[in-house]
Nucleic acid binder design. Sequence first.
RNA 1: GGUCUCGUAGUAUAACGGUUAGUACAUCGGGUUUUCAUCCCGACAACGCGGGUUCGACUCCCGCCGAGAUCACCA
Length: 479
Amino acid sequence: MEIITRFAPSPTGYIHIGNVRSAIYPYLLARQSGGKLILRIEDTDRARYVEGATELIEDTLEWLGINWDEGPIVGGPNGPYFQSERKEIYHEWARKLIKAGRAYADPTPPEKIDEYRKECNEKKIPFLYRNYRPTKTPEWEPGIPLRFKAEPKSYAWHDEVMGDMHTGPEVLDDIILIKKDGYPTYNFAHIVDDAEMGVTHLMRGVEYLSSTPNYLALYEALKLERPKIISLPHILAPQGNKKLGKRDGAKSVTEYREDGILPEAMLNYLACLGWNDGTEQEIYTKDELIKNFSLDRIQNSGARYDETKLLWLNGQWIRKIFTEQGVHALYERTLNFWPESAKKSSEDYRIQVLSIIYDRLKTLSDLKEMTEYFFTDPKIDLDFLIGNKFVKKLSESELESLLKTTIAKLTDLKEWDADSLQDALNDLLKETAKKPAELFSLIRIAISYAPFSPALNLTMEVLGREVTLARLNRTASAI
RNA sequence: GGUCUCGUAGUAUAACGGUUAGUACAUCGGGUUUUCAUCCCGACAACGCGGGUUCGACUCCCGCCGAGAUCACCA
């Protein structure tokens, strides 16, 4: 049997890390089995609809490398893929239900319903609308909400993540199928759509677990086969025990793109939050995730979102891309992250810088802070010298003569490459009888005035003879 | 309140009847001729509690405690 999964967001804003996993897992499952992923936009709530949200969702999925087989943009045989354009389909199914005596138009005004609810709350008994069913119901027509006529009974089902489930009749109620405005509720629409689109595996957040019996009743009344049900635990906010949401400052997935997170790292991190394959592997490519993913190893408790680990993974991925695909491949990813001053320099030079700095990057945006001095002469700040625990022991005249000796040595250097530079530096250590910590710190500060930088010889090689000597001279005369 | 779910180090997780309870991130030490990072080595640190069942329980059962979800003409 072909596996067909779906991701069905409502276009009310961006996708954040708390809910993107319900796109990732269906994607992995579909791809691993050679099945299909459907993207469906659930836009039946016109009040909450946000212009441009659909594009935001598509953009996020594309960035993560999650492509869909049916849905907006790509189309498909079961369209339209926007619920707002499927009104007639829902009405058709609704009429079947009415005909079978399983749905009724409900003329009760909302205020009356609130009263019923209050009454129950006061008596501390559960509020069930089916106990207040109107005795006389009109013919259904647009403008009147349509309710399901529930039959109180027990249900048992299997949830691929949560295990065997069962509930009593007390959870079944007359849920609204079609709203006053003629649009279906989620409760009704998703069932119709999943059936029409042939969805076999239904993955969604655990928040739907408690309404599942009502959906089961609906499948039954509609004479539909129910799909496999998979409830995904929540991702928890870093603080407290709440599910991660926009109110906790959950950033949009694509915001991480601007922050210099690689999509590979993001996908890797999110997929492994609440799922593991039982091995001790930490770094997974998309293909490895597809290959190893399995429903039965999805965690059944919530997982806390931890940005530290994401950052670590991102660093790993930066290095992985560098070693496996080369500097150029990594460079392609960095285009938007260089400091302003880098624009003057050649691409070739930027690539040289990247190849010596890449293993210090946690995010691509670190480039801005970390490479400035490669492109523009740093401001001389003698506090760097005073603040260094080795350099500060040396007197001013000593500093000056050390710099002079270094300048002389480097001026005479035949070849300006990493090896020759290292040899020269080693000679200087001998000649001046200084410790590496003293001499190298001094030189490093003089040419970069940065809190950290790559190995000295590599930094000088990339900067070039002219710039290196000029910077050493500048410091020598500033002391 | 009803119904349902979950509970291994700070975090993510492994082990699912017999292990010194494993791994990774974080933290703290140490190493790799300067710094920061990488890399390597080491340390700290966990089975929510209480009863059973069993020769033996993190693992099975019961109770408690704690946490979460849901009870909308939102999805």
